[in-house]
Every structure is written in C-alpha cells, then in structure tokens.
Design a protein around this nucleic acid. Structure first.
Length: 420
RNA sequence: GUGGGUAUAGUUCAGUGGUGGAGCGCCAGAUUGUGGCUCUGGAUGUCGUGGGUUCGAACCCCACUACCCACCCCA
C-alpha cells in the first residue's frame, strides 16, 4: 500500500519526461500562435463553482467529484474539468473590463474524476485547454478546431475525425425540449430509468443513451438541428463554411450533446480512429451563458479540453514517439581513486561551459565506469594516469571508438567544440 | 456503480499439492588503463494481503486490495 500510487493515478517517471515536455512545448507553441496566453488556476475550487458551472444533473457532479470539507468547514472539490476555474478567474480578475476577446490556455492541469480506471482513463489525468472569452463569431470555434489540428498533426497524429453539432441556445432549446417530449409521449415509460429521469431534467441527453431499447425509440426523434433558431442556425452554417474553407473534414453528429450542461450552440469532439477506436481525444464547444451564470457580465465564450495521457496513447499508436535524448554528453572517467577529484572538477568545468557532463558517483572501477558511460553518454573523457603526467585528458567517442588527447587546461572548451 | 480477466525476481513469464525457476536486465570476474560481442559466477522473492482446507499450499476454497479490459460516462 505504502509503495503503491492510489488507484487510477500514474507517475510520470524520468524516462518519459521528454515525451511530456515535447508535447507541452508544442501546445505552448500553437497556443501562442493563436494569441492565447497561459492561465494557472487552483487545483481545487469551491464545490459550488462546479455545481453551478458544470451542472447539477451531470454524471461528473453527481458521482465523480472528489469533494471534501476543509478544516474551515468549506466544501472543496478537486477540479473535475478545466473550464469552470478559467471562467472564475476571468470574472474574479475582472478581465472582462479589458479589450475582448481574452484568450487563455491551461497546460498540464491535473483533472480529478472518481471513475473506474481503464484504457485511456484515469482518476487523475492532465489536460491542455484553450478558452476564448468575448468572441461571438464562429471563427472562434473554427480557430480552436484548427489549432487542435495543427497541434495533433505536428505530433504525427492522424486518422482523427472531428464531430460537430449544435445544441442551440436558451431561445431555441426549450422549444426543442418540448418537441422531444411530445415525440416521446407515453413511450418514455418504456425507456431506461436514466432516460426517464433525464426526461424531466435534461431531455437532450436522452439522445445520448446507449441502451438498445432507448436508441430504437429515439431513432426517429426530431433533430435539434432542424429546430435551431435563426441565430443558432446561421452560426452553425458559419462554422461549417469556415471548416470547409480550411479543408478540415468534419462529420455532423446530432448525437453528441456533451456531458457538461454549460454548452450552447457548438459542441465538438475529436475522436480516435485507430487504437482506442471511438475514444474522445478532445471535447469542447461554446458556452455563451456560463460567464453570466457564474456571476460575471454576459460574455460569449468557447473552449476545449484535450487529455495529455490520451495524446500519449495516440503517439504510441502512430509510432511517432520521439527517441529519448541522451542523458549526458560526456562521462568523465577517473583511472584510479586518486583521479576522482580531478574527474569531478572537469565535470563541473564542462557543465560551466554548457556541456552536459557526468562523473562516477558510485565508486566504480574504470571498466565499470566505461560500462555505465556506454549507457548514458556518447563521449567519455578519461582523467589521470599517463595523461595526467602529460597534462592532457583522453576523449573517446563511444560510437566510433576513436580516441584523442586534449590539453587539460583548455579541455572544457575543446571538448565542447569536438562533440558538436 | 456493473461485468470479465489477472497478481510468482527489476522486467517478461513458466511452474496445478511435496526443497521456488528461465530469458532479458542488474552486479562482478575472465581483461593488471577502455563499454557494446563471448564465456563464467553472483545478488534479488514475506509466490499481492488476510483467513481457511491439508501431514504439507505459489498451486485448492473464501474475503480483501490493486492492475488490465469492457459497460456507463468522459479527456
């Protein structure tokens, strides 16, 4: 127990660090290109933020949150998604008072959901997300999707499909709910308990049900897309035009309604097509009412979240994982115990000169130092012995097995030149 | 929350009731100033945890925990 990470959590070990850092660097790059700057919000928030923001009827809020009372009797919840915190920060920081749109991204934010772990799903996972406040035009959603594409294709991840839908706004959605209830009528009693509950609280989600019986009943239900008000219709058409203009292929999927209540108009998902087929890599959409709902001024907004662990799965599937960089460039070996101080000093001088260098810390024999060096460094510098008398060090290329003597006095700079 | 599978060395796994094993990895030696190949030797296990059956349990039974997979839902 003591030496076992909690269920559904995972360590990032040093051997994998370069993968995460490479992905994170790409994310910062694409976000910056689109004018998004980083935001960092707390790992925990007041529970109420998620109740109001994410929605009290959602699975996330009803059964997946890590909620506890702190010592001051406040109800605290570990972030179960990234948007609510960003919106809170936007309001609390009075960012709405500046020129809008205000664009921000969060990176490597830990997200907590109490779920049963399986492939691509953990209790703690990490997300990159972009949020744009104050943009009402469909160019915002197009920009988000486009940025995602450039991120993922830059990582060599292909075979993705974009699914988009519009779930209307507070004008047209109630009308659709009414139409859906009319359509279902008495047949709601034949549906699963979950759907019967959703019928009252959030009828749209009935379309999302995976029960065969429910799917059959819902098959010919009216579509939200046919009942969009003029504004929502035009917005959706606008997004489709923009995506097509950019040659981004997409599928319209009336069944995606998303599990978070705050969405309005556009919702979208990017789905894996290989490996973990059907698993969502990324989800997002527009949430024009959320800022106001949480106490800010009415501000249109849109954003997405994408799971880093799932990107790593796709990276492995695509076979485009970068090779790990060498741990060090030069391993400084000491011939005898008397040479260890000099080896240590040369190591430090190399580091000062900007060369990744390492020496023995385990009291190994020269032979063992070489063996170890062979695993972590392309070059070995040998200090001591005859070379000490001659005032030189021996530099060995571990790949070509070539060796040369270098004057000790100028060794750090000379080695720096030689290994480049 | 539900269902299926799994748990033995650092790792991948074999071992079906009678003295715990192999490959790879790790450490050392052959090589007294040089890694990778070869050869030789070595270390490491409360056989997931706790009970039970038995003269005797890694093996059979029960419970628990974790991991993998799936449903639900989601990143």
């Amino acid at each position: 127990m003591l030496t076992q990470a909690p269920k559904g959590t995972r360590d990032m070990l040093p051997a994998d660090a370069h993968l995460w850092q490479m992905i994170e660097a790409r994310m910062r790059e694409v976000a910056a290109l689109a004018g998004y700057r980083e935001v960092r919000t707390p790992v925990f928030e007041h529970t109420e933020l998620f109740l109001r923001g994410v929605g009290g009827t959602t699975d996330i809020v009803q059964k997946e949150m890590y909620t506890f009372l702190d010592k001051g009797e406040r109800s605290i919840t570990l972030k179960p998604e990234g948007t609510a915190g960003a919106v809170r920060a936007f309001i609390e920081g009075r960012l709405y008072a500046d020129a809008l749109p205000c664009k921000m991204y969060y990176l490597n934010a830990p997200i907590f959901r109490y779920e049963n772990p399986q492939a691509g799903r953990l209790r703690e996972h990490h997300q990159f997300g972009m949020e744009c406040f104050g943009g009402s035009q469909p160019t915002v959603e197009a920009e988000l999707i486009s940025t995602l594409f450039s991120l993922l294709s830059g990582l060599g991840i292909k075979n993705l499909s974009v699914h988009i839908n519009s779930i209307g706004c507070k004008e047209c959605r109630p009308k659709y709910h009414a139409a859906l209830k009319d359509f279902l009528g008495e047949r709601i009693s034949e549906m699963c308990p979950t759907c019967r509950e959703r019928f009252e609280r959030n009828p749209l989600r009935i379309l999302d049900c995976k029960e065969e019986k429910c799917k059959a009943i819902v098959k010919d239900a009216p579509s939200m897309l046919d009942m969009l008000c003029e504004g929502c219709h035009d917005h959706f058409e606008g997004l489709k035009t923009l995506l097509s203009a950019q040659d981004i292929g997409y599928a319209i999927d009336p069944r995606i309604v998303r599990g978070l209540d705050y969405y309005t108009r556009t919702v979208f998902e990017i789905i894996m097509q290989t490996g973990r087929e059907g698993l969502a890599l990324c989800g997002g959409g527009r949430y024009d009412a959320l800022v106001e709902e949480l106490g800010g001024p009415a501000t249109p907004a849109a954003g997405f979240g994408i799971g880093l662990e799932r990107i790593l799965i796709e990276l492995k599937n695509a076979g485009t994982e970068p090779v790990a960089p060498t741990i060090t460039d030069v391993y400084v070996a000491a011939i005898t115990d008397d040479d260890r101080t000099e080896a240590y000093l040369l190591t430090q001088k190399l580091r000062t000169a900007g060369v990744k260098a390492e020496c023995d810390h385990a009291g190994r024999s020269l032979k063992a130092q070489f063996k170890f060096a062979g695993k972590i460094a392309p070059f070995v510098a040998v200090v001591g012995g005859d070379e000490r008398a001659r005032g030189t060090v021996l530099l060995r290329n571990m790949n070509t097995r070539e060796q040369q003597e270098i004057p000790l006095a100028t060794a750090p700079e000379a080695i720096k030149q030689l290994i480049e």
